[in-house]
């Protein structure tokens, strides 16, 4: 993707650096150094400040990661509904630990706090799309949707 254009498209939006980061990340999957430096230039702040913004928010990643980001809610309602077993199933199925990405670059596993779908716990999201009342046995088929 042409990140230079994406960032400059947001140049006139007051406080638009977050929205620019969202847009770039939607294409690249994370925020590489060059993106942060370019955003700093366009929004007229220091590179350190731009990096400070990128690293503050848990949805932004400054490191490269798997293309499909799987997040597991670990907030209390999901915790008591069995989130740990879903985590175990995901780690087993993908052969990686939480916080890691698969070697083929397809998947990243991350924890998240509540994603606001607490009527049907436990909940995971894949690229922001929620899956509700998740049972460990469903994990292979959910992963297959993105493989």
């Amino acid at each position: 993707m042409d990140y230079l254009k994406v960032i400059s498209d947001h140049a006139d939006v007051p406080g638009g650096i977050l929205q620019a980061f969202h847009a770039v990340q939607a294409g690249l999957g994370y925020l590489p150094k060059e993106v942060i430096a370019e955003a700093a230039r366009v929004f007229k702040i220091s590179t350190a400040d731009a990096h400070g913004v990128a690293s503050f928010y848990s949805m932004f990643s400054v490191n490269s990661r798997g293309k499909n980001v799987i997040r597991i809610c670990e907030s209390a309602p999901c915790h008591v509904a069995g989130a740990a077993e879903v985590v175990a199933a995901l780690e087993r199925e993908l052969g990686i630990k939480m916080g890691e990405s698969t070697a083929n670059g397809l998947f990243a596993l991350e924890f998240t706090e509540c994603v606001g779908q607490c009527q049907a716990t436990p909940v995971i999201t894949v690229n922001g799309k929620p899956y509700l009342d998740v049972k460990p046995a469903q994990i292979p088929s959910i992963i297959a949707e993105y493989s």
Binding site: P14, G15, L18, Q19, H22, S58, M59, F60, E113
Partner: peptide, 23 residues
């Protein structure tokens, strides 16, 4: 505007900082 995963941004002045494009 979209937040980016920070619970503290629900606090009104943190939310304002975030709207302004800051931490």
């Amino acid at each position: 505007r979209s937040g980016a995963g920070a619970y503290v941004c629900g606090e009104e002045t943190a939310l304002i900082e975030s709207l302004e494009g800051k931490r």
